[in-house]
């Protein structure tokens, strides 16, 4: 009897492994290329970035996240990033609201390119910080642009979205989180 159980062992191990395979293939939204942020529920990193000259919005520093008691959306963008253009309409929407801060980190970009890009497509951001050598980006754990963070009024990172936002992302993920955080205050 005992011996016979031993002969079942390879089968049992295999079933377990296949269970994992099945999970990996079918779990919705699993993308092995996407990396979850380790900064969720941690305070946002320290940074102090100068603004884009020739634009009417100031630079962006850590302190701005906690200054006015509003929830902040921090968007990482660059003029060379094609998907950033795709999510730009949603940034314009978010920027029109005055109950949240919409901040941006201009990631690894030339100031003149960024300026031209914003002039052409409109500037929704309340503050923009330049990050030419991506040091601030690295502190935020940025690995692909665009990325969007939601930071609460206490300066704690609550959510990170990798890749361009679409209508569904905005309606179903970003806005509910913002409302939720606002309700908690």
């Amino acid at each position: 009897m005992n011996r016979k159980v031993l002969f079942l062992l390879p089968l049992l191990v295999t079933i377990t492994i296949f269970g994992y395979f099945f999970w990996a293939l079918t779990s919705p939204g699993r993308d092995p290329k996407k990396l979850p942020s380790v900064l969720i529920d941690k305070p946002a990193p320290m940074f102090d970035l100068v603004g884009l000259e020739g634009l009417d919005v100031p630079g962006f520093a850590r302190q701005d996240l906690t200054d006015n008691g509003k929830i902040s959306v921090v968007n990482i963008f660059a003029s060379w990033c094609i998907p950033c253009l795709a999510e730009h309409p949603y940034m314009l929407k978010l920027g029109a609201r005055d109950d949240i801060n919409l901040f941006a980190i201009n990631y690894r970009d030339k100031p003149e390119d960024a300026l031209k890009w914003l002039k052409k497509h409109g500037n929704p951001y309340h503050r923009i910080g330049r990050d030419p050598n991506s040091r601030a980006g690295i502190d935020w754990g940025v690995y692909g642009v665009p990325e969007t963070f939601i930071v609460d009024s206490g300066g704690t990172i609550r959510y990170k979205h990798v890749g361009p936002l679409n209508t569904g992302d905005l309606e179903n993920i970003i806005l509910p989180i913002i409302e939720n955080l606002q309700a908690q205050q």
């Binding site: 002969f7 390879p10 089968l11 295999t14 296949f18």
Partner: peptide
């Protein structure tokens, strides 16, 4: 293939 053969094995 694998499950079947290991069942047969068991």
């Amino acid at each position: 293939a694998i499950g079947g053969s290991l069942t047969l094995f068991a």
